[in-house]
Amino acid sequence: MLDIKEISKTFNAGTVNEKTALDGLSLHLNEGDFVTVIGGNGAGKSTLLNAVAGVWFVDEGSITIDGVDVTRLPEHKRAKYLGRVFQDPMTGTAASMQIEENMALASRRGMLRTLKSGITAKEREFYKEQLKVLDLGLEERLTSKVGLLSGGQRQALTLLMATLKKPKLLLLDEHTAALDPKTAAKVLEATDKIVNRDHLTTIMITHNMKDAIAHGNRLVMMKDGKIIYDVAGEEKKNLTVRDLLAKFEQVSGEANDRMILS
């Protein structure tokens, strides 16, 4: 499904702020894989997702999604293969537009936008049904401006929008990190529900080791722009947070405060 071959990315090359964020990274995902990605700050987790999403082009290497080489495809053209949810709840939705308008925008991802009506009556019914999945009461507020929603509600809506038109690949960039524990759990639950229902191939970045173990069928640990640990199947299921921390210290010689705390 996703084939990343030896990609590298260096920011601010040739200056004192030079930073190699991705260093010859390769990753292959099969259809239906749900991979959780962990690693310390600056390990290159978000950079990896941005590379796949095409926020900028990689310096070297290639990215193939479902047989299509997207390495040189701009962000908006790549979007038709991807569903994305971001860390900041403000990033994934248009605050000044209504809930249903946001969903209508998302359901036309990858389609040519014409002078046809931006939202139809039939769509409204469909969106209502979809919003019920979230169990947040949003189905009664279709015409509310998204800016009026809480961070958790916006994040759940973004998740729904990312999957409204079934993506080849779902990219979740620490999408629960900015939420309170209770809301985070609810959004994660919705994530599992939707991913399982639609058998979505998913990459989820998280800082929470427990979540990384509990969700998905594969776990990847990153450091300095490389994948340093890759575990799947039964072995992954039997992992504990202690195992992961030990692994992390073993390969890096340091433990990240935030990871210990979580």
């Binding site: 999403a53 701009p74 962000e75 908006h76 053209k77 979007a79 038709k80 991807l82 994305r84 971001f86 403000m90 990033t91 994934g92 939705t93 248009a94 605050a95 000044s96 537009m97 308008e101 946001n102 209508a104 925008l105 998302a106 036309r108 991802r109 990858g110 389609m111 936008r113 014409t114 002078l115 046809k116 009506s117 931006g118 939202i119 929008m161």
Partner: peptide
């Protein structure tokens, strides 16, 4: 009428949130 069409909505979302618009496949 125009700002209610697919194209018009794309212009509005570009002004509201360009990052989100690109993620939704809009050429901002």
């Amino acid at each position: 009428w125009f700002f209610g069409t697919e194209l018009g909505c794309a212009i509005r979302s570009t002004g509201s949130n360009p990052n989100m618009s690109r993620a939704q496949g809009i050429n901002t």
